[in-house]
Design a protein around this nucleic acid. Structure first.
Lengths: 117, 117
DNA sequence: CGGCATCCTTGGAGATACTG
DNA sequence: CAGTATCTCCAAGGATGCCG
């Protein structure tokens, strides 16, 4: 949104410059995943494939909420769902490639927590 | 200083927080800043110092919402507030050291947006 | 076990008006 | 300009129950 003057083309633009550039981009991401439960579920799935009730326990979300959040995330392409219809039905959730690409975000957050929490 | 009636964030850890505290502190961070407006305001302040109405315009938040979000963020130590009482009163907001340390998170988010948005 | 339907409560958040 | 005070509306989300 903010246009900034051209500059040296080193690998590393100035901080201010870079910040001005990405502010808008980030808002789009926030609109998609910037809700408490979506973040928590995505973060939780970094540990690997999990089933519904497993996620329910580890995240603390109610089944109603979890169901909707998983639906939203799947629809938006952040996670994938594999179902087993046999004997005890099971539903496994994993991060999609798109969702997995968010890991650095959570890692940054984790690093921040180490220093400031 | 004190967050008023509507949304009050207690310091009491939730069940979820307690359960996952030692596993990963991401959840704690999410509890603190994982709401749409907090993320948007923090992200916006990466551009540098801004005043109230400036933030109001750039984020699109109402003054009511913005006022509360800024109060919460300041109370939690993510931002700092400098006031000028002269002629036209002015109130400037900037990221604190603690808040600035979150920049890598937004940079990761931006990088993700470049690839997947 | 997974997960949708229903009810119900809470708070997130806009619009508007007012004050120092 | 920088907020605060209300009033109001609606979505988020917990609890419960049911069903394949």
């Amino acid at each position: 949104m903010v246009t900034k003057p051209p500059s040296e083309e080193t690998d590393e633009p100035t901080e201010v410059e870079r910040r001005n550039a990405d502010v808008c981009n980030v808002v789009g991401s926030i609109e998609m995943i910037g809700s408490k439960w979506k973040l928590i579920v995505l973060n939780d799935l970094r540990e690997g494939e999990k089933r519904f009730n497993e996620l329910k326990r580890s995240t603390g979300a109610s089944s109603y909420t979890l169901s909707r959040v998983l639906g939203d995330l799947e629809e938006a392409g952040f996670i994938e769902n594999r179902k087993e219809f046999e004997a005890p039905v099971a539903s496994y959730y994993t991060l999609s490639e798109r969702g997995d690409a968010l890991c650095p975000v959570f890692e940054s957050l984790d690093a921040w927590g180490d220093d400031w929490l």
